[in-house]
């Protein structure tokens, strides 16, 4: 969570709110913030830290591990209509890549605004595709790997 907190401004600029969620109580979140997170990131975690006691929310989203009694690392990007546009689920030992989250937000926001699909590895300013009959079989002429 500290890594997300450290780059929270990048998400703020994109008008994205973050909600973090574990089975710990809100009281434990307070302790974690005061005793550790605030020492890792200036000001600590700036977004709401949710108490998913019993894993009810995790169960709804399919990320609650009953055997371990915890939520695994699930990340869900939800658009302004409340629709899930992206999700990623990792087992606990591997942390997430924040840069990829930002890239996905930028790409989904671009698609929402323009309707243009974004090719693999797309970054803002890079080429998009204009789907239509003329593009069938011609992607190779219009887009190269690395574009």
């Amino acid at each position: 969570m500290a890594s997300v907190a450290a780059r929270y401004d990048d998400l703020k600029k994109l008008d994205v709110e973050v909600l973090s969620c574990s089975v710990d109580s809100h009281f434990t979140h307070k302790m974690w913030q005061e005793h550790e997170l605030s020492k890792m990131v200036e000001g600590g975690v700036p977004f709401p830290m949710l108490a998913d006691t019993g894993g009810k929310i995790g169960t709804l989203y399919g990320v609650y591990d009953e055997a371990g009694g915890v939520n695994v690392r699930g990340r869900f990007l939800i658009d302004p209509d409340g629709v899930i546009q992206a999700m990623e689920v990792l087992t606990p030992p591997v942390g997430r890549n924040f840069a990829e989250l930002v890239r996905q937000v930028q790409a989904f926001q671009h698609v929402r605004k323009t309707g243009e699909p974004t090719p693999a590895g797309w970054q803002p300013g890079k080429k998009t595709l204009k789907p239509g009959p003329d593009l069938v079989g011609k992607v190779w002429e219009n887009w190269k790997i690395g574009d």
Partner: peptide, 16 residues
């Protein structure tokens, strides 16, 4: 958070 983009991040536990 209707009308906003939201990222929900689940993780195993505080102090891990």
């Amino acid at each position: 958070y209707k009308d906003r983009w939201v990222v929900v991040c689940f993780y195993p536990g505080d102090f891990t």
